[in-house]
């Protein structure tokens, strides 16, 4: 397993937010994680990213224990729900941020950023400031800025939650394309059932701080706790002629 999480526990005061979390993920795969608000998804991602310290448990990345590593040494990028761009930097500099930290030669930075701008379909926007872009464009920049650093693991916390349906669909397609192109390993947290099924190679459901990883998508769909059955019943009632596929 590329990522191994073993018995991670985290409490805030009296409340245990993450309970005995254990799961694994193969390299270059995406694990979709569904769950209601407040069930501990964001805390789990922040623990993996090193932004929140767990009370107990271990995290291994590529066989190495990373419990004591600082966020900057983990090569794990945590992407916020909102398109959080650096407001004082242009789009080009936002994307180049991680490369500049590594003191990479200027020509190499320029070439990589231009390539990423092309992949993100953001040509002509490089000199603009973040507030001059639309929500979808900002989210693309946010992706590009993370992916260009070639992170070991990408943590996406409801990245398309604030986008309209059309933009959301285009962003899902773009993420699938980038994930394949840059061979990304990621955890994709979402509230949307369809998005979870579309984006993940594997699917997990988080409930009151406990994570259930399903062996396959069918198992996820069949579990009444995930809400997929309710969704199918809802659409079945709206369209009485159609039959329940399961």
């Amino acid at each position: 397993m590329f990522l191994e999480v073993k018995n991670v526990v985290k409490s805030f005061q009296q409340e245990q937010v993450v309970k005995d979390l254990s799961f694994g993920l193969e390299a270059h795969k995406t694990l979709s994680i569904l769950g209601k608000s407040g069930c501990g998804k964001t805390t789990m991602l922040k623990i993996l990213g090193g932004l929140v310290k767990p009370d107990s448990g271990h995290i291994l990345l590529n066989g190495n224990l990373i419990d004591e590593q600082s966020p900057s040494d983990r090569h794990i990028v945590y992407l916020y729900q909102e398109d959080l761009l650096f407001p004082h930097l242009t789009i080009f500099e936002n994307i180049a941020f991680g490369l500049r930290l590594k003191k990479m030669p200027r020509e190499e930075v320029n070439a990589k950023v231009e390539n990423m701008v092309h992949s993100l379909e953001l040509e002509g926007q490089e000199t603009k400031m973040p507030h001059q872009l639309s929500g979808g464009q900002r989210q693309r920049v946010s992706f590009g800025r993370a992916i260009i650093t070639n992170p070991s693991l990408l943590l996406l916390d409801e990245p398309f939650g604030s986008l309209d349906t059309g933009t959301r669909q285009r962003m899902q397609e773009l993420f699938k394309k980038l994930a394949a192109e840059f061979r990304i390993t990621s955890l994709f947290v979402t509230h949307d059932l369809k998005e979870a099924i579309l984006m993940g190679d594997e699917i997990a459901y988080m409930r009151s701080g406990q994570l259930t990883v399903y062996p396959d998508k069918e198992g996820f769909i069949r579990d009444p706790a995930t809400g997929v059955q309710d969704e199918i019943a809802f659409w079945g009632e709206l369209l009485p002629g159609s039959s329940n596929p399961l």
């Binding site: 966020p71 900057s72 650096f86 941020f97």
Partner: peptide, 13 residues
């Protein structure tokens, strides 16, 4: 505060 976390996540000390 969030931008700080983000920058650290991108590798900034």
């Amino acid at each position: 505060a969030e931008l700080t976390e983000l920058a650290e996540s991108l590798g900034a000390n």
